[in-house]
Nucleic acid binder design. Structure first.
Lengths: 208, 208
DNA sequence: AACCGACATATCGGTTCGATATATCGAAAC
DNA sequence: GTTTCGATATATCGAACCGATATGTCGGTT
């Protein structure tokens, strides 16, 4: 499932590993953090599969000579100019060699396959969150299908939880009961959130 | 973290692998399902560490002769008696050889260590749910500490989400924004649920 | 008698994790 | 001025977990 996230981010722009990790953790950080131990092997896999390719391996010192910048004549001015050079001309200058990856045609194809594949039970919640973050690339009817599929799963989970609850309530201690009750409420809230998304999608509008 | 679940269940009664899996999936199934591919290696690890031990390996056919049961004289009566024997005398009769595990002293010790260890970032949510399911074994002040520690983590997560949200809102598409907003609401609901648990705990009462 | 589904244990390959190793660079501390 | 420190960056290791699969045993159905 990590591969979906990588491909989705690379679809927008070319990135190197470290930057990829940063975006993964602070854009989707609440749902899933990623470690280097997963990220670099995943990148290697994707490269081996031909889904991404390393576009550039930037050297530590740029081969191109630094552009001549006219002096301002003041120290503060020089500092400002330096900051400007750093933040615009070379937005994230390399502190050492970096491997910048780009999405290939094959990768774009794989991305769409992963986005529409129905995920398996456990990491289902994370997978859905991830898919939602990239569902803008889906055609509207597929997107709607994704939402409804998710809704059906939650409703079914809720139903099973209820029957389990009734048949096993007496055997659970009160802390566990509280946990299950809270989980039920959360699932109900998830469903009505999905309902709102679905309604907006049907209207052809964007979510609020 | 699976080991905590196993030890917690074995603390109540001796169980074999298959039964353990059933209880894990339908008591805590909403939060975490467990596969045999995790369960049996985990049991083997725990046994190697001396935390559990196989008490009995029940044979397919019991060595003890079946107790003589007085006849009822009717077929229906015989069937009822048979069901009764199955459901009370041998509640879950072995269909083949089973390895029944029991908690050792060392295991009980490990259980408490795991219950009080602060868990690491990612599977944090699951770990807390699991701990809550077994927190009845904790002394009241430790239990309260667990709740407050969890609350602090959620509050901090919320704060980070808010600053991230403000600084990066314009770069997120609307589906991702909706996802993040919903996540925030869920976290807020989690916090107030914890507040209720904490308040009840302070009163010395049980959760409702 | 053959078959199926529930019970039960176990292993395999693949994926992810946390920890760790290595190296470069700018900035601050001394 | 040099050493130290923290951020940047890539990579690997072992342990853990998952889903799939293999193997085998019962009891009940067809």
């Amino acid at each position: 499932m990590l591969e979906l996230a990588i491909l989705g981010l690379l679809k927008e722009q070319e990135l190197h590993g470290y930057e990829l990790k940063k975006r993964l953790t602070d854009a989707l950080g609440a749902f899933s953090s990623v470690s280097f131990g997963s990220l670099y092997p995943a990148l290697a896999r994707l490269e081996a599969a031909g889904a991404v390719r390393a576009v550039t391996v930037e050297p530590a010192e740029p081969v191109l000579p630094a552009p001549v910048v006219p002096m301002t004549g003041s120290i503060a001015g020089e500092a400002a100019a330096f900051r400007a050079r750093r933040s615009t001309a070379r937005p994230a200058r390399p502190s050492r060699t970096r491997k910048v990856y780009a999405l290939t045609e094959r990768g774009s194809q794989l991305f769409e396959e992963l986005l529409e594949a129905d995920s398996t039970s456990v990491d289902d919640d994370r997978a859905f969150n991830l898919k939602l973050a990239f569902c803008r690339y889906l055609p509207p009817e597929r997107r709607l299908g994704l939402f409804e599929q998710r809704r059906a799963l939650l409703v079914e989970r809720l139903a099973r939880a209820r029957t389990n609850h009734r048949s096993r309530k007496e055997r659970m201690d009160l802390y566990t009961q509280s946990l299950v009750d809270h989980g039920t409420e959360t699932t109900e809230a998830d469903i009505s959130w999905l309902d709102r998304l679905i309604a907006l999608e049907r209207k052809g509008g964007q979510p609020s």
